[in-house]
């Protein structure tokens, strides 16, 4: 991983994640197109591949995945302070919006007008997410596309959740390393 030559300012980390938190609707995965835009394309803090590494790690840490991803990106560039600032950014919009409108929202949420607005938001997020997924898969080598297709299939048939797959990949990676070490030892003794 490359570290930027200039340290990323904490205020910039805060503002980037406040933006992501403010326009995020849906689960943690809905954050990925936003994160790709802000962190990969606009700020160039990391590549799409590094972003998916951090997103994978975010799944095996306790807590909310979107917040964990923010914490990991923040920690990657500015240590503990960066992590804290990124998480604060992520929860800023929820706090402000809910404190401002929560009480009114309970009856507003019954409005058919609002329901119609949200009806279009869901397929829009699905479209955004599919494009991010295709970019992630498309940049891989042949075997990587195969692994991605396999993981996707396992998820779709419901054989495993994301956590199980990621833990499985970690175990498989460690076994791969152990096998590689054993191979070089064999070559060395011959």
């Amino acid at each position: 991983m490359t570290t930027p030559e200039q340290p990323v300012p904490l205020s910039r980390i805060y503002r980037s994640f406040a933006w992501v938190g403010a326009v995020l609707f849906g689960g943690g995965y809905a954050m990925l197109p936003l994160l790709e835009r802000e962190v990969v394309e606009r700020r160039r803090w990391c590549t799409l591949a590094e972003m998916s590494e951090l997103y994978a790690l975010a799944q095996v840490i306790p807590g909310v995945i979107a917040v964990n991803t923010a914490l990991l990106v923040g920690h990657r560039y500015r240590g503990a302070a960066g992590a804290a600032v990124a998480a604060l950014g992520m929860v800023s919009a929820p706090i402000v919006v809910i404190l401002a409108v929560a009480s009114a929202f309970v009856w507003v949420s019954e409005w058919p007008l609002l329901a119609r607005l949200f009806a279009g938001l869901r397929p829009a997020v699905a479209g955004l997410l599919l494009v991010t997924a295709l970019r992630m898969v498309g940049r891989g080598k042949h075997w990587e596309r195969g692994v991605a297709a396999g993981a996707c299939l396992v998820m779709l048939v419901g054989a495993s959740g994301p956590l199980g797959l990621i833990l499985g990949a970690i175990v498989a990676g460690l076994l791969w390393q152990a096998w590689a070490v054993a191979q070089t030892r064999n070559v060395g003794t011959r």
Binding site: Y29, L32, S52, L129, L130, A133, E144, A148
Partner: peptide, 16 residues
């Protein structure tokens, strides 16, 4: 290994 697995997870989430 994690990178393609995550790509597959996101793809499955998008399709779902």
């Amino acid at each position: 290994l994690l990178r393609p697995v995550v790509a597959g997870l996101v793809l499955a989430a998008a399709l779902g």
